[in-house]
């Protein structure tokens, strides 16, 4: 764990350069360039708005559905693009791994950082919508940074695990699409977790993303502190995933160049 943190600090320049290259490579030879960073979330927002609000008429906790949705959609997009981009962070860069000796974990952190740039742009959309609907943030909005930190730990931990596993079994990258799709439906992205009741609710918050997304809504839309037990559970699971990911990665790192 500590070894990994030391490596990140020492190789911060490389992580930065990798993240910039990943972002550039993603939008090379496109006409719309970085406009895709805005277009994708907007399109998803329109689809969600249509299906969940118009067709299914789900309740949205007393705020306009678009805002209600975007509060969870923005962090969800960060999570899902991070995972789907870094699942191939090691395998797609095998040409570097087999030729140069450098800490391989920088590839994953670079990939997450590159998704973070996209995420910042998504939050600009969020701010624009908040202004448009004239929703004011309260003091509890500062909890956002704590929740985002927890999400970052969880996301990075998952990315490390997923990309490491993908080196051994490329099945992971093929399964990722359907896994992320169903994971989204099991998380309160398009609906409020309030509609989940009974036995299912006991297990519902074992998914860290559920606790995290609900906490965003509490602090940004309703100006109240997050639901601590759920957020704490999410935080603990996130930490466990991150630590075990780093541990496994460090153990496997010397073998990566032979298997990738």
């Amino acid at each position: 764990m500590l070894a990994v943190l030391k490596e990140i600090i020492h190789w911060r320049h490389l992580i930065f350069f990798l993240s910039v290259s990943f972002t550039k490579v993603k939008y090379k030879q496109t006409y719309l360039r970085f406009a895709w960073i805005i277009l994708n979330p907007l399109a998803t927002l329109v689809i969600f708005n249509f299906i969940f609000s118009r067709v299914a008429s789900l309740p949205s906790e007393g705020v306009p559905y678009v805002i209600f949705n975007l509060t969870a959609l923005a962090p969800w997009i960060f999570f899902s693009t991070s995972i789907s981009c870094s699942v191939g962070a090691l395998t797609d860069n095998f040409n570097l791994i087999t030729r140069i000796n450098f800490p391989r974990i920088t590839l994953i952190f670079g990939s997450v950082l590159s998704s973070l740039y996209d995420c910042i742009v998504t939050y600009l959309i969020f701010i624009a919508f908040m202004k448009f609907y004239d929703i004011k943030l309260g003091m509890n909005a500062f909890y956002f940074f704590l929740i985002f930190f927890i999400q970052l730990i969880f996301t990075t931990g998952m990315c490390v695990l997923v990309s490491l596993l993908n080196v051994y079994l490329r099945d992971i990258q093929h399964a990722m699409f359907v896994v992320l799709q169903s994971w989204m439906l099991f998380s309160p992205v398009g609906y409020s977790s309030g509609i989940i009741t009974g036995k299912v609710r006991d297990f519902y918050f074992l998914n860290p993303m559920a606790g995290i997304l609900e906490s965003y809504r509490d602090c940004l839309l309703h100006n109240r502190p997050p639901d601590w037990p759920n957020l704490l559970l999410a935080g603990l699971i996130s930490l466990a995933i991150f630590v075990s990911g780093c541990y496994l990665f460090k153990r496997q790192e010397p073998n990566l160049s032979d298997i990738v």
Binding site: W11, H13, L14, F16, F17, L18, S21, L96, I100, F102
Partner: peptide
Amino acid sequence: YLLCAIFGL
């Protein structure tokens, strides 16, 4: 830029 950074510069 990228390769120099990978070499640790």
